[in-house]
Every structure is written in C-alpha cells, then in structure tokens.
Amino acid sequence: MTKAIEINGLTKVYGNGRGISDLNLDVDQGDIFGFLGPNGAGKTTAMKMMAGLLRPDRGEVKIFGASIQEDYVNAMKHVGCIIETAESYPYLTANDNLKLFARFYPHVDQQRIDECLEITGMIKYKHEKSGKFSLGMKQRLGVAATILSKPRLLIWDEPLNGLDVEGMLEMRRLIKQLAGEGTTFFISSHLIHDVELTCTRIGVVYGGKLVNTDYTHNILANYASLENYFVSEVDRNGRI
C-alpha cells in the first residue's frame, strides 16, 4: 500500500537558525496525523515544503508516491491545503469564492459547492461577501475550499484558528466523518486537547526537530493526557 506521505531528510534552515532539520516521517493512508509543537518549532515551514510552497535546502517529500519536487502536478492532484491562514477574495461572496476554486476541478459543480458550504456551516452566508466574515467564518470557508474536490489528503495548518467552541466541535466531527470516508489528514495545531480528541497518530516537533511519533492510544495508555506526554517530551529534549 502506498504511503500517503513520505518525508526523507527534509531540511530548511533560515538565517536566524530557525526552521526544520532532517525531518523523516511516513504517514499511512487513513491516518489523522497531528503535528504538535510550540510556535516557532518549524511546523509551518515543514508544511509549506510538503505543499510545494517552499523549496527545501535538501530532502524529499512524496505524496501518494509522487515527488513534490519532480512531479508536482501529480503529487498535489489529490491534496487540499490550508497553510497559515485561509485566503479568500474579500469582494466576492462565499459562493463565488468557491466557484473560483471549482474552476480547477472539472467535476465540481454548484451542487458540490452547496454541499461543502452545508458541511462547513457556511450555507446561510452563501451570498455574503467574505470581506465581512469573522476569522472563524473565513476559516470555515477555507476548509470548504479544500474539500471541494473530495481530496484523498488534507494538509491543514491550525484549522481550528479563530473558531468558537461550537465551530471546534463541528470541525472535529467533520474530520472524523471525512476520515471515515477514507481521507488522510495531516494537521498541525498547538491546541493539544483537540489533537488528543481527533488525531490517531501524533508527531512532536521541538526546536526544528521531530522528537517523537506514536499512536494516540499508545500515548494515552502511558500518560494521563496528551498534554502530559507533550510536556515530558519537550522536557526530555531539554530546552523548555
């Protein structure tokens, strides 16, 4: 079975010494992989390289067996991404924003756009301009855009950003629903509790290094909570 993501020796170091160094990681199809780490740990840098938005100093990323560097179009064919913030055109309505994205996918019609607006709780704002939206609503619209084409892999950087409690619960439900339908997830977050409730497997990044990966059920068999595990991993790596 092809791995959803294979990362080998991925490295990008900035002038200030920050970045990510020698990242090696496989994500299986069907995983809901949680990428945990404090701000500045290198999560977004790694995800930008995975999405082909940033050229690594060295190393390689393969998605469903296709190399991001050598075969970008095929690698990204089945991927939906939100990196940093969900972008939209402020002067267009929610519906028109999604119609614009839908042009890239021949099989996405208005019915599918409505479906995605419904799934993300945005259908009632269908004809409102996104410039008036709150951060949480923009985030929901961004999520709707990433699932339009029914991708096999979703790479989401801080998807719960700006969401209220109800929005977070809905997002967790959506992730579990899509995972049940066969979608693989790679999610970065600093909201440890939500990762614990959502992700099947966890990787901890600290100081630009991947310090550990394990299945959530293994971690919770040995620690009272994911937060306890995270603190002990960061402690063990001696730079808290």
Rank of each mutant, 00 (worst) to 15 (best):
V27M: 10
D28Y: 06
D28A: 14
D28G: 10
Q29R: 09
G30D: 00
G30S: 00
D31A: 11
F33A: 14
G34R: 00
G34T: 02
G34L: 00
G34F: 01
L36C: 06
G37W: 01
G37I: 09
G37S: 05
P38Y: 07
P38W: 10
N39R: 02
G40C: 10
A41W: 03
G42Y: 01
G42F: 01
K43E: 02
T44D: 01
T45D: 00
T45F: 01
T45V: 10
M47C: 05
K48H: 05
K48Q: 10
M49E: 01
M50Q: 06
G52T: 13
G52R: 03
L53R: 05
L53Y: 08
R55L: 12
R55P: 04
P56R: 00
D57C: 02
G59M: 02
G59W: 00
E60Y: 13
E60L: 14
E60M: 15
K62H: 14
K62F: 11
I63N: 02
I63F: 12
F64H: 06
G65I: 15
G65C: 13
G65T: 13
A66L: 14
A66Q: 15
A66M: 13
I68D: 02
Q69M: 11
E70P: 03
D71G: 04
D71V: 13
V73N: 04
N74Y: 08
N74H: 13
N74R: 15
N74V: 05
K77N: 08
H78P: 06
H78Q: 14
H78F: 13
V79R: 12
G80R: 15
C81G: 06
C81I: 09
I83D: 00
I83T: 04
I83R: 00
T85W: 01
T85R: 03
T85I: 07
A86E: 06
E87H: 12
S88C: 14
P90Q: 07
P90E: 12
Y91E: 03
T93C: 07
A94M: 08
D96P: 03
D96H: 09
N97C: 02
K99R: 15
L100Y: 12
F101S: 15
F104H: 07
Y105S: 05
P106K: 13
P106L: 15
V108D: 02
V108W: 01
D109F: 09
Q110N: 08
Q110V: 06
I113L: 08
I113Q: 03
D114Q: 10
E115G: 04
E115K: 11
E115Q: 08
C116M: 07
L117M: 10
L117P: 05
L117H: 03
E118T: 02
I119D: 08
M122T: 03
M122F: 10
I123K: 11
I123S: 10
I123N: 08
I123Q: 10
K126E: 15
H127M: 09
H127C: 06
S130R: 13
K132W: 12
F133L: 10
L135N: 00
L135Q: 06
L135I: 02
G136C: 13
M137N: 09
M137I: 11
K138A: 15
K138F: 09
Q139H: 08
L141M: 09
G142R: 03
V143D: 02
A144H: 01
A144I: 05
T146S: 14
I147L: 12
L148G: 03
S149E: 09
K150N: 07
K150M: 11
K150R: 04
K150V: 11
P151C: 15
L153P: 04
I155L: 14
W156H: 07
D157A: 00
